[in-house]
Design a protein around this nucleic acid. Structure first.
Lengths: 201, 201
DNA sequence: GTATATAACGAACGTTCGTTCTATTATGTA
DNA sequence: TACATAATAGAACGAACGTTCGTTATATAC
């Protein structure tokens, strides 16, 4: 009962790396087995189907994002500090290739499965809804703490912040533009500033 | 010589539709041939290789974007009107699924090939560089016309505007969120306003 | 240390992949 | 109408795909 879990984790880690490069759909059991030095059938036995492998791989990716980007931010005091920490972590995450050699697995899957019905898409949507909700909540707390203007629309701000992250990932990976991180941090600060309660000018 | 071009166009149109759903890498010659009611080898003869088919399909996608979103905006007077028209067209483009049933082919390919070296990636990068440059130029013209503050950084603003588009596409397609378009238009207006030369307050 | 459950293997299944031939139609031109 | 050429079809290829099977090796529990 122990050995199984162990190699399963090994497989999923390698699967995340491979899928980040070729996509969850491009992920092939044979290639994955070769990379791990094990047999196709031996690997396959850990999952009942390819779809299950895809699901478990995505779940692993979501978990890694959550524990790398999101959870550490909760240590910061609620309000602006927490919100800033969240996006600082997120930018760092993007900077270091989003936890996988081929970039963020979740982002890639979001485009790959945006019109491919099934369990993978549903998992993706659920994760995205949860994340968006959590960001909006952090914004709401910042309003309650008096850090942001009461008129701030949490969902609108969430939308715009998410756009900054997407643009950063895009510029870093496709265009290999190192300035993306600076631009992202600048955009974040100016966006926050625009929603901040103004002190004496 | 004429019939060939004709069916070639037919093939590429269908290829765009299919690739938008399964990706340029997931695009298969057999499936494409079946959809068109022709033989695999007959279709294949129009392109020397699968990579060539992918390249031509992407080129077609880029051309469609250019003539649907970009070129019409050039009819507007330079400066803010042209910039607004460009993004109004772009938002409409996203609203109607970016010209293909599976969403924007270019966006999908950008993620699919962001770490897959080769001709497709190079075409993608070239197209993206050109587009970014064109947007930055439109911004620069708006500065010259006195519509935007002289201190405006064209590349920074381009980055942020592009982020809005990415977030819109994401929310519309993965989350099926109809409010995305409104949020995008709102974000655009506020971003422009922040860079506008302020009249009397 | 032996019995048993679990994990991994190797071979084969039927499909589909991209690609290469050769043959047969359809088309444009003299 | 005849001919040259371009366009399509059909069959076959080796490889890879996901999956199933029966068997062997290994780890766990008594």
């Amino acid at each position: 009962m122990r050995k199984g879990e162990q190699t399963r984790t090994l497989i999923l880690n390698e699967a995340m790396a491979l899928a980040s490069q070729v996509g969850l759909e491009g992920l092939s059991i044979g290639a994955l087995a070769t990379r791990l030095g094990m047999s196709k059938s031996g690997l396959f036995a850990h999952f009942g189907s390819k779809e299950d492998l895809q699901l478990q791989t995505l779940k692993q990716g979501q978990a890694r994002f959550e524990e790398t980007v999101f959870r550490p931010a909760l240590n910061e005091p609620r309000g602006l500090p927490r919100l800033r920490a969240l996006f600082a972590n997120w930018f760092s995450w993007v900077e270091q290739n989003s936890g996988a050699p081929g970039g963020c697995l979740i982002l890639a899957a979001s485009i790959e499965y945006d019109d491919r019905p099934g369990a993978v898409r549903e998992l993706l949507v659920a994760g995205q809804r949860e994340l968006r909700g959590a960001i909006a909540k952090a914004i709401r707390l910042a309003i309650d703490e008096g850090h942001l203007k009461p008129g701030t629309d949490p969902w609108q701000l969430t939308f715009e912040l998410f756009g900054i992250v997407l643009a950063t990932h895009h510029d870093r990976r496709l265009l290999d533009d190192a300035r993306a991180l600076d631009r992202a941090r600048g955009a974040l600060e100016r966006l926050i500033e625009a929603h901040q309660i103004q002190a004496a000018s």
